[in-house]
Nucleic acid binder design. Structure first.
Lengths: 208, 208, 208, 208
DNA sequence: AATGAATGAGCCTTCATTCAT
DNA sequence: GATGAATGAAGGCTCATTCAT
């Protein structure tokens, strides 16, 4: 994560990876077939971690709109709390929201529920996903380039809820809730790597 | 554009560029300092082209919401009509919506007008931009990976308008208009390059 | 001369040459077959210039030791007075004292005379040339790297005369004379180019 | 050494170096950052080798003039005995006598001693160095271009001693001694590379 | 199981030289 | 006679990958 966040996913690496990991070339190849392999693995591991936590927090809620709102808020707040995560997400670019990603696992169910319960308009599923993924990713990416107003996360969520069909009042009611920060498990990948993270100046050069 | 669309911006090229362009190595370096230089130039040229056309179509309209709606629709429809454009946009990834991009030049004015005229909620400007840029980019990117229902462009626009504060009815009124396709000038970069474009199977490997 | 002095003879050039000369690529090739061609031409022209002047100054003297001493002093003093010349000489390296060079044209006759008149020991001609060329070149080269004590030119000449067989007293008598600076003709290559010369920091990188 | 001697230091190589060394491109860059890097390293290694041997031979002598004479003779004789060394030295040009070179490490001490003991005139140190370095380098360079009379090495040494202040008789007494050839250690860089050296015709093209 | 030296394909970049205008 | 766009050979350098130890 440290390397991908800093260099971008496509800027060559392996040497950086192994030196950052304190591991030999040979060892790297014992565990990963290629660089992208590692990136995919890291992405999946990270996704699994976050998804589990989000689902824990969300599973008790009846209202799909509330589940969706809270989930997206948690995602955004985690990105703000862990710049490494925001940076990694930006580097992974649209791949981070690709087929095997957290958001795409998490969202469709809640959206579908919302439509069935009449809380959301009957938008085509893909369109909803594009809007949410795109909006969230851009907001997070921006947060890793310049500092963003942390309150704006609520605006993002409210706007997304409105686009799905909620009234402004309703949208704000859900978006405005206080949200306790995620509690990462002791050995969490994100927690461990964030400990070593020292953000570098952003050249913007290799950004996606 | 042909090369960037096919290979992705970061899968290095130059050799492909010059053979596609039918130009020698030395000539390339006479005009561009690096590969990324070329990409930036192409992106800017393309942006200039489209922006000009969009502004022509939009400048007569009084309602900022209408201007925004039409502009975004035109952008989306152009991407669907010119797969090369969609593909290029996906390859350029978030860079295509970066600081010097079409959308960021086009949008802020209209959004601001809309807020001042009371048509839009008073969202933070950046949040609006994130939502629109992100949503549109994701929709276009998806259109270049698999085929999308061309009607969904209207859904995207309607949803964005709702998120900005329009009622559903109002949003649909604007999003549902018929839109005449863009008429690219004879010597347009996009038109000329599209003539040579034969979409390739998408490996997904290097996709952003 | 400006370019060769600055970049060194082997560091690639032509582009620098033509831009310094304010001349087009094509024009360059009309007059010179290659870069080295130009360098040889410049070296010859410069040599001719200096040789003419030295011979004028020296031809009236009967004593071959005196002729040699004055000639070498003039060469050295010119190098100190025209840093461009010193720099160029250093860049040309041993080539500047190569087969077609000033010194090799100038010296042998006087040395031979000196031997025949019993002023010099009967050293092998080549050995004398090595000592004089080598010593002078190194002194000049050093002067273009760091500043040297201008008085040391006399020491060089005195030492060379001693090595050829003169007594220390005799050597100093000849080496210590005041020497009027060379008067370069109006259109002299060296004078004209020196006008434009602004010494750059010496990296020492490409130095010979 | 083989490559530098043959091609000259500035006629770029790497490809020649690695094919001569029977080593891959990557391996080259594992050990040296650039071509010049390698050249510097070779020069230093060679210098270290010779300096060690010379010091061994010279350290027992009380008379600094004798030490200097023997050292220079050894240097010259080694160059004549190992044409590769002569050729390499010529190619390295003035760099071979540059700041980190053998001669500059070796000479100053003895010269200083000589002055203090009244054997040498009180020449400025740099001037002595210029004369000795320049004279010796030129003699060696010439030996690698055409064949030189091996006896002339003595003339060079005698002349240098005279220039430093010794009488002709004294100079010859020291310069004329028989000198046993240097005994290079088994694994000496110079010895090993000389084994593979087959001198090529000298085009003179790239000569320094 | 870990190591890291070695490999070489792949790409980038420069620059001498040509030649149509 | 002068120009400068175009060329492409020549070399530089990096980095993913292999493999003997």
């Amino acid at each position: 994560m440290l390397v991908f966040a800093e260099k971008g996913v496509d800027a060559s690496v392996i040497d950086d990876v192994i030196s950052t990991a304190g591991v030999s070339r040979g060892t790297f190849y014992k565990y990963f077939k290629s660089n992208r392999d590692l990136m995919v693995a890291a992405n999946e591991e990270l996704g699994r971690e976050l998804l589990t936590l989000v689902l824990n927090r969300v599973s008790g809620l009846d209202d799909p709109a509330e589940r969706l709102a809270l989930g997206v808020r948690l995602f955004i707040e985690t990105a703000l709390a862990f710049p490494l995560f925001a940076r990694f997400t930006r580097s992974a670019g649209m791949a981070s929201v690709g087929p095997r990603s957290l958001l795409l696992d998490y969202l469709p169910g809640h959206i579908q529920d919302g439509i069935e319960q009449g809380r959301f308009f009957d938008l085509p599923q893909e369109v909803s996903l594009d809007l949410i993924s795109g909006g969230v990713l851009f907001y997070i990416a921006r947060s890793s380039e310049s500092s963003v107003d942390p309150e704006h996360g609520r605006h993002v969520v409210a706007a997304l809820l409105r686009s799905l069909g909620l009234s402004d009042a309703e949208a704000w009611r859900l978006a405005d809730r206080e949200v306790a920060p995620m509690e990462l498990p002791e050995n969490s990948l994100l927690r461990r790597s964030s400990l070593r993270y020292r953000p570098q100046g952003d050249s913007g050069e290799d950004a996606q």
